[in-house]
Design a protein around this nucleic acid. Structure first.
Lengths: 134, 134
DNA sequence: GTTATTGCAAACAATTTGCACCCAC
DNA sequence: GTGGGTGCAAATTGTTTGCAATAAC
C-alpha cells in the first residue's frame, strides 16, 4: 500500500472541504465531473477508501448509502429514523474518553462518530395516525 | 403503519437477545432457518426495519453490511479501519448529553451510537508507516 | 522504464420490491 | 371475509474488481 496521496485524492479532499457536509460517493463523483476533471466513479471510491485508511476521511451510513466527510469536522448528528433528517449537534462529550483509550490500548485512534437516533415530531405523529395511504 | 409486532418479528427479537452481538440480516436469516421456521430473507429485512422504527433494534454498518442488535445493549466499539476488528467498550460518557437533548428538542430519542475508528497495531505495521502527520 | 493509478464496464452483494398466497383477527 | 404479513424470485443499487491505457517518478 502506497504512502502517496494522488491528484484525484487531492481533489476529493478539496471538494470535501469546500462543501463541508457529508456527501455520498456518487454525488461527489457528479460534483467532480461538473468541475474540471474526467474522473471515474471507481476512482472516487478508491480514493475515499485510501483517505479513510489515512484517517483523513470518515463515513457514516444513512439508508444504505455511505456519506463521506473530512475527519476534521467532528460534528455529530441527531437522526430521525422515520424521515432520515439529520440535525447537527455542537457539543461533544467524548474527547476525554478518546484520549484515555488512546493511551490504554495499542490502537491509533483517528476519530469517533456519535449519532443519536429517534423520531422527529412530524414522524411521531404520522406513525400514530393509521390514515397513511397513497 | 401498524402497531403490531408480528410473530416473525418476535423470533427476530428473541434471537437477537439470545446471541447478544451485532449480526447481519443474512446471518440472522440463516440462524432462524436453522432453528424452526421457514422464514424469508425479505421478511427478516422487513422485520428488522419495522423494529428499528419502533426503537427496539439498532444497526451499524461495517464493510457495507448492516449489523443489527437490540437497542438495549448499549455497548460501543473501537473499530480498526484496516482489518475491521471491533473491540467492545464498557464506558459510555454520553447518557447525560442524551438526557439534555431529550428535553431541549422535539425529538424522541431511542438510542445513540458511539464508535471509535483507528488502526490496530498489526494494521499499523502492515501499512509501512507513510508520512503520517503529527 | 518500471510501477502505481486511472477509467470504463462488467461483476458483485446487500437490500428492496412485486405479487400471489396465507394467516390472524 | 378482509387487510396486513409472508415467501419467493426478480429487480435495484451502492460498491468493487479486471484489465488495458495512462501518468508518475
Amino acid at each position: 500500500m502506497s504512502p502517496r496521496i494522488t491528484r484525484s485524492q487531492e481533489s476529493i479532499l478539496q471538494l470535501l472541504k469546500q462543501i463541508d457536509r457529508p456527501i455520498s460517493a456518487q454525488d461527489l463523483y457528479v460534483e467532480l465531473r461538473n468541475r474540471d476533471r474526467t474522473i471515474g466513479l471507481a476512482t472516487v471510491y478508491r480514493g475515499l477508501e485510501a483517505l479513510k485508511l489515512r484517517g483523513l476521511v470518515q463515513s457514516r451510513t444513512v439508508n444504505g448509502e455511505s456519506l463521506y466527510s473530512l475527519v476534521h469536522s467532528d460534528t455529530h448528528y441527531l437522526t430521525c429514523l422515520g424521515c432520515g433528517t439529520s440535525i447537527p449537534l455542537e457539543d461533544c462529550p467524548v474527547r476525554e474518553l478518546e484520549a484515555t483509550l488512546h493511551q490504554s490500548l495499542p490502537f491509533k485512534i483517528y476519530y469517533h462518530t456519535l449519532e443519536f437516533f429517534g423520531m422527529c415530531l412530524p414522524c411521531q405523529l404520522q406513525l400514530d395516525s393509521p390514515t397513511v395511504r397513497e
